[in-house]
Every structure is written in structure tokens, then in C-alpha cells.
Nucleic acid binder design. Structure first.
Lengths: 247, 247
DNA sequence: ACTAACCTATCACCTTACGTGAGAGTCAAG
DNA sequence: CTTGACTCTCACGTAAGGTGATAGGTTAGT
């Protein structure tokens, strides 16, 4: 029968010697024999088992579970793989959301000439179209398209109401700055702010948090809010993040 | 200025007290003041910083790097986010590949199971389980095991080729039934059948003869072959016995 | 048989981002 | 002044190994 030293097996399988030591320690892969001097010697079966271990390991399955899979003959591999696939799909979805959030943040960072509020402020629905070209270079076209669609669907009076709502929210918030951002009254206003943003595009908690972050990191946003009151940007930002927890 | 205890801040931000201790330890978020009794008290700025931390943390950015981002004024956030996005995209791609691998594996498991039943037994998947027991009594479990092992090692396309070969052989044989089983053309097809069986286990003349016998005595095999043409089972069986003389 | 070069063994601490107590001190309320 | 809630600082545990340190084993060439 074949006989491999730790290093040989490690090289064959493309893992480190330490890894083999580790697998021995946790009982996942014990060498076929141990020499007088405690040297580990593996045989062909061990190599085969190691290959299987690596297959499952590549799927990001914890070593403990790999051990169960390999050691119990009647382990339902099919079920285990299905289960693991679900987890991976969740992970993938999560990562996709993170990427979307970064995209959102990047777009807003890039947007140094105009921020969201400035863009729509004073623009009538008819002017929205003219703005579209310029905006598309700056924002994700999806978001802009969605935003534009929604604005275009508004009547003139609705649009005016939306504009006024923005101003109202900021004024009211400025009055509440003696309270904590987590205060119920403040949160009620943040809810209005959240709804207001909803006029333009679908807001997820991640996006809302990202927006909160922008309010304090981007001078443009900060300046806009601080027009109403010094520190309003920070105040609103805190309130938004607190609010986002409950969305 | 606001003053929060560890627990209060933890609750506000939705993290554990231990987390705040940890952030203090690693210097990521140090409380504004420490009381006589070493109690931590945070203020509004700390809350703001914590919210920033959580924003980046959600993006799966390591705490050490979050510290750099927040502490160095000239840190290029834009670049950092772009970089991190790339990493996330890699991660996403990797996860996608893992899912694909699992899908592939699942498909092979399924194919193997179904076709194993269909080809060996001509039985529906539902009856497969029951038949397996029966089969093991009739065949040596060694043979069944060997067969399974070989099938399990095939790739999907290999397996599909094997399936197609089976159908091809039977169709061709059915066309040759006007000849004698010892006819050269028939024997050529029997050779292919012999090779095909070799996909599953090592075939000796004795085993091949035994299989020939089984094709006409076991109704299951008989039914399977007679799907192609009435009497194909007997015809093939005769051809196999003749072929076995020369192995 | 001797030595250099290489291989292997067993500790044992380090990594991430905290969780989970243990034991002791502190604070606000009754 | 006690009770209960809160807080403090160790300090070990997690997963899957990385990275030495130190000591002993094997092998090839001489």
C-alpha cells in the first residue's frame, strides 16, 4: 500500500502540514500509522478521505459537519447539501445587498455638485426630464429612473406638497433638537422624513442608514440641513439610524 | 451634553455591552469620560461614531480598517469603498460558484439514484428503495457497492453518455433480431454491451453468463429489454452466452 | 560511521469579533 | 442600610489554522 509522509500528502492535496496536524488533532483525518518516532504516515484511503474533506471544505461546510458527513454511512448528504445551498443563497443575497449599499453610497459621494435635496428642490415635473441626462451620469440609472417615474406621475399640487413637506420636516426637527434623537416626538418626524424619501425611491434599511451616513460625512448634505439649525444634520442622522433599526 | 452608560448606549445602537467593551479595548470607540469608579460614559459624538462604525461593520469591513477610515481625515473613503466592493463581488462570485457546485453534485446524486434504478432494475424511483434490498440478496453486495462507487465517480456528461450508449445498443440490437445471435454483426453489438457493463463493475465470463441468465429469468430485466422489441431479452441473452465463450 | 540538510514532533501563543461567566465593586431606590 | 440592577476587570472559548520555538528523526553524500 502507498505510504505518504505529512509533507508528501500535504503537497499532493495542496494543503499545509499544519492543516493535517489540525485534522489529526480534531480527529477528522487520522494517519493510517504512526511510526516509532510518532511520525504520521498516510495511505491511499487517507488520501481519498482527504479529497472528500476538501470537496466539502470548498463548500464552506464546517469541519465538524464534514466529519459527520463522512463518518455516518446513513447521513443524508442530499438533505445536507440542500440545506447548505439555502445558506449559501442567503449569503449571496446578503452580499448583493452590501454591494448595492456601497453603490448607493458611492453614487452619493460622487454627487458633489448637487445632493438629493438640491436636485429636486425648485424643479417642476416638466424640468425633471431635462435633469435626467445629467443625473444619470451621477446616479445609478435604475434609481434615477424610478425616481423620475414617480415624480412625473405627480400632479403639480402633489409636487408642491412634497416640496413643502421637506421644508416642514426640517423646521419641525429643528424645533425638537433639545430632545434626544431617540425621543418619540423626534422619531415621529423621522418617520415623516422616511416617508418623504419614499416619494422618490424604495428605501431599504441599508439605504436609509447609508443616507444617514451621508448626511454627516458629506458637506453638501450637512450644509443643507444646517441651514435650518446648526447640528441638524447630525441630529437627523442619529434619528435616522435609530429609526432604521425598526424598519 | 448627553451622557450614556454602556448599557444605554448599547441599547440605543442595538449592540451588546461586551461589544462596547471590546471597541474600547481595541481603541475603536473610547468613552468620552471615565468616572472615578472606571465607569464608561459616552456622549453624543460617541454615539455618532458608533453609528458610523456600525455602518461600515455592516459592509463586513474589519474593525481595524473601520478605525483607519474614521481616524484618518485624509483616508480615501471612495477608494476604500471601491476596493471593498471588489472584494464583495469576488465573494459573491465565489458563493455563486459554490452554489453551482452543489447544484451539480445534487443533480449527479439524483441522476445516479434514478438511473441506477431505471437501468439496473427498470423500476420507478419509488420502488427503488425496496428493490435495493432485494438486489443485494441476489447480487453480491460487493458488486452493488463497486457499481455504485463507479457511477458516483462519473461526471454528469460521462453518465449521460453511458445512458445514451445503453439506449443505442438496445435499439441497434432490436434491428438485428432477424439475424442469429451468433452473427458477427450481433456479436459486435454484444461487445458494446459487454463494454457498457464494464462501466459499472469488472466483468468476468462467469458474471457475464450469470447476467445473461438473469436477463431471461428475472422479469424485471426482461420487461426492460422487451420495451425495445418483443423477445429482445432472449435474443441478447443468447448473444451474451455465445460472446462469453471467447472472453 | 559521520555530518549536513532536511523532515517531523509537540507545545503554545496569535488571529476576528466578540460570548460567557466569575468575582468584586458601584449606584439609585426603598 | 440593604437590595437589586449595573458595572468593572480578568480570562477562557470559539474556527481553522499561521507562525515560531525547541528538540529529535531520517536520509544522502562522504
Amino acid at each position: 500500500m502507498e505510504k505518504f509522509s505529512v509533507k508528501q500528502l500535504a503537497k499532493l492535496a495542496g494543503v499545509s502540514v499544519r492543516t493535517l496536524h489540525h485534522y489529526d488533532e480534531i480527529g477528522l483525518l487520522k494517519p493510517a500509522v504512526r511510526s516509532e518516532a510518532k511520525y504520521r504516515y498516510y495511505n491511499g484511503d487517507d488520501l481519498l478521505r482527504l479529497q472528500q474533506i476538501m470537496f466539502y471544505r470548498e463548500l464552506d461546510i464546517p469541519l465538524a459537519q464534514i466529519g459527520e458527513i463522512l463518518d455516518s454511512k446513513d447521513f443524508n448528504i442530499h438533505e445536507a447539501l440542500l440545506q447548505h445551498k439555502k445558506e449559501l443563497q442567503k449569503r449571496k443575497k446578503h452580499v448583493s445587498e452590501l454591494i448595492a449599499t456601497i453603490d448607493n453610497t458611492l453614487k452619493q459621494l460622487k454627487n458633489t455638485k448637487m445632493n438629493y435635496n438640491e436636485i429636486y428642490k425648485g424643479y417642476s415635473p416638466e424640468q425633471a426630464e431635462a435633469y435626467e441626462k445629467e443625473a444619470k451620469e451621477r446616479w445609478s440609472s435604475d434609481r434615477v429612473e424610478e425616481s423620475k417615474q414617480r415624480v412625473m406621475k405627480m400632479t403639480k399640487s402633489e409636487w408642491e406638497a412634497v416640496q413643502k413637506e421637506s421644508v416642514d420636516i426640517n423646521i419641525e426637527l429643528a424645533k425638537l433638537m433639545h430632545l434626544s434623537p431617540q425621543d418619540e416626538k423626534v422619531q415621529t418626524m423621522v418617520q415623516r422624513h422616511f416617508n418623504w424619501i419614499g416619494n422618490f425611491y424604495t428605501v431599504t434599511p441599508e439605504i436609509y442608514r447609508g443616507l444617514a451616513n451621508m448626511y454627516i460625512t458629506d458637506e453638501r448634505f450637512k450644509a443643507n440641513y444646517d441651514k435650518y439649525a446648526e447640528g441638524l444634520a447630525e441630529f437627523l442622522s442619529e434619528g435616522m439610524i435609530y429609526f432604521a433599526r425598526a424598519i
